[in-house]
Design a protein around this nucleic acid. Structure first.
Lengths: 289, 289
DNA sequence: CACAAGTGTATAAATTATTTAAACGCTGCG
DNA sequence: CGCAGCGTTTAAATAATTTATACACTTGTG
C-alpha cells in the first residue's frame, strides 16, 4: 500500500538495540520496557521477513542477516543525524550544567566523551559553581549538587549516592592515632563548604561524638580548594571517594570508618524548566553512568 | 527522553514529499490525505526547529535548509533501502504480472522504469500470457486483461478504459472506401483473440450492422501477432490506441469511427491472493500512470 | 469585482500503533 | 529442584496518526 519503506524508525531502534547483548539491557538504556523492544523487533522482523536476532536464554545475538543489516544501516543513520545536528547548529541546542569544579574534574570529565558522542548536536557548557543557589539567575539548566537532597528551591532528583567521611593529611592521621578520634577532632579546624551546612553536625552525630559549633570553622566553598587546604594542613574536611587519587598517594588519609551515608550527589532543576529536551538527554545519560 | 533520533520515518516521508511541488500532489501519490502530509511535515519542522517548506498559494517549495536536508538524507535512506532489498533478495519478494506481450511492449515497457525506481526491492517478472485464465496455475499474481471486465473467475478491477475500433491495412481501407463499411466488412476475415470472444459481436451491434458468425474467423491470441497479420492483409482486427505507431506510419488504418467504448484493460487478481504487498504496490503504481 | 478552483491549515473523531505492566515459559546454574 | 535472568505474550492504557470536514487564503477568470 505504501510508496516508500516506512520502518526507518524501527530499523533505527534495531541499530540501537543491536549494540546491547540483551533486550532487557537495551530497554534500560533506551528508557523503554523490554516488552516494547520485543514488540518492535518482532514487528521489524515480520515486516522484513528476516530474522535479525537469535534468542538465547541469556540474551540475544545478531544473526548474520542482522549483522549485515546493522553494518549497512547504522552509518547511514548516523550521517543523517549528524547532518541534522549541523543544520540545527544555528538553533539553540545548548545545555548549561552547573557543578563544582571538584565534581567536574574528578567524576564528570573522564566520562564526558561518551555523552558528546551520543549527542554531537548538544552544545554542553560546564558551569563551575560554588554558589549552588539561584540556578536560573546563573543561567544554569541543571545543577549537580552535593548534600542530603533536602532542598526546597529546586526540583531534586537523587543521582549518585556517595558516602562522605573525614579526611586529613598525614599529620592529622598521626594525631588521631595518638590522641584518639574525639580529642584529635576537637583540635582540628573543620573545613566546611557553606555557612549553614549541617554536614559536620550530621557526621558527629553518626559517629556518636559531641560537636560544638566553633567560630573558627573555615568555610571553603570550592571542594578542590578545600582538598588542597586539607593537604596543606589547614584542617580536616568531609570528602568522598572522589579523592581516591589523593588517598592512594598518601596525600590524604581517611580518618574514620564512620560515614555520612545519606549524602551524595543530586540533580537539581530550576522549577521553571527550560531546554527540557537537552536536559532530559543529559539526565538520562547521567543515570546510565 | 529518547536516546536516538526517532523521526526517521517522518524524515523519509519528507524526502518523498519534497519531490512533489505541493502537499496535495504528494498526498495523492503517496496514498495519503493532504491533512496527514501537512501534519507530518509540521511535526517534523517543529521537532527539528527548522522550516523545511515555504508555503505558497499554489504549492510548496523547499527552503534552503529543506533542500540541504533532502540532499543529505535521501541518498542515505535509499542506500539503506537498497541494502534491505538485497538482504531480502533471498526471500520471495517477487511479483509476476501476466499480460499480453502487446500490452507489455506498447504500454508497460516505456513506463516501467519509474516502478523499478520506486520499488527497487521488488523483483518484477512480466509473464507474457495469451491464455488469460488459470492465473494461479501459471503462477501469476496479477494479470492485465483486455476486454469488457465481465469475468467471474477472478477479482476484477477497472484499470485503463481504452476504446477499440476496427483496423486494417491500406488495402482494406481502400476496400471500405469503395464498397462501404457493411459490404467491405462482410468480405474481410475477422481476426479474433479468443474463440469465445464477443468483441466483434459487440462492435457490430454498436455500429448498427448485422454480424453473422463465420467459421473462417481466424483466432490469433497474441495481439502483436494479430497486428502483424492485419498488416499482412490476413484480415481486420479490433485494436486500440496502442497501435498509434502503426497508424502514424500508415501501416494500419482505422476503418470506422464506431468504437467499443466499454472495452479496455482490467486488473485481474486470483481469488486466492498471494504476495499482497507487492501486488498492492504494483496496482497502486499502475493507477498513478 | 465576484467567484471558482486551487492551495495549506485547523479541528475533532476515528483509527492504528505503541507502550506498559504483569504474568508466563524457557534456560542455565548452583 | 528452585532461583535468577531472559524474551514473549496479553490486555489495557496511552499516544500517534489519519481522516473527513470546514476554513482561510491566493490566483486567475469571467
Amino acid at each position: 500500500m505504501s510508496i516508500s519503506f516506512k520502518h526507518h524508525d524501527t530499523l533505527r531502534l534495531f541499530n540501537e538495540v543491536a549494540q546491547h547483548s540483551s533486550f532487557s539491557d537495551a530497554a534500560e538504556s533506551l528508557n523503554m520496557t523490554k516488552g516494547a523492544i520485543s514488540y518492535q523487533i518482532k514487528s521489524l522482523e515480520e515486516n522484513l521477513a528476516l530474522k535479525l536476532f537469535e534468542r538465547y536464554s541469556r540474551g540475544v545475538e545478531l544473526t548474520p542477516n542482522g549483522r549485515r543489516l546493522l553494518n549497512a544501516s547504522l552509518s547511514h543513520y548516523r550521517e543523517v543525524e549528524t547532518e541534522l545536528a549541523r543544520l540545527r547548529g544555528t538553533v539553540d541546542q545548548s545545555l548549561t550544567v552547573g557543578m563544582s569544579s571538584y565534581f567536574a574534574s574528578r567524576w564528570l570529565s573522564p566520562r564526558l566523551m561518551t555523552f558528546m558522542q551520543k549527542h554531537p548536536d548538544i552544545q554542553l557548557r560546564i558551569q563551575p559553581m560554588t554558589q549552588v543557589f539561584d540556578l536560573e539567575r546563573q543561567g544554569v539548566d541543571l545543577a549537580i549538587r552535593w548534600g542530603d537532597g533536602d532542598w526546597d528551591d529546586v526540583e531534586v532528583e537523587p543521582f549518585l549516592p556517595m558516602p562522605s567521611w573525614p579526611v586529613g593529611n598525614q599529620d592529622a592521621a598521626d594525631c588521631v592515632q595518638q590522641l584518639g578520634l574525639e580529642r584529635a577532632f576537637s583540635q582540628f579546624t573543620l573545613l566546611r563548604d557553606r555557612d549553614d551546612s549541617n554536614a559536620w553536625t550530621d557526621w558527629f552525630r553518626a559517629a556518636g561524638l559531641t560537636h560544638q559549633t566553633r567560630k573558627d570553622t573555615l568555610i571553603i566553598p570550592d571542594p578542590n580548594v578545600r582538598v588542597q587546604a586539607v593537604i596543606d594542613g589547614q584542617g580536616i574536611a568531609l570528602n568522598d571517594e572522589l579523592v581516591n587519587r589523593e588517598l592512594e598517594k598518601g596525600r590524604l588519609v581517611r580518618l574514620s570508618e564512620t560515614e555520612l551515608s545519606s549524602f551524595g550527589y543530586f540533580l537539581a532543576k530550576p522549577h521553571k524548566q527550560s531546554r527540557t529536551e537537552t536536559v532530559d538527554a543529559f539526565v538520562h545519560w547521567l543515570h546510565e553512568q
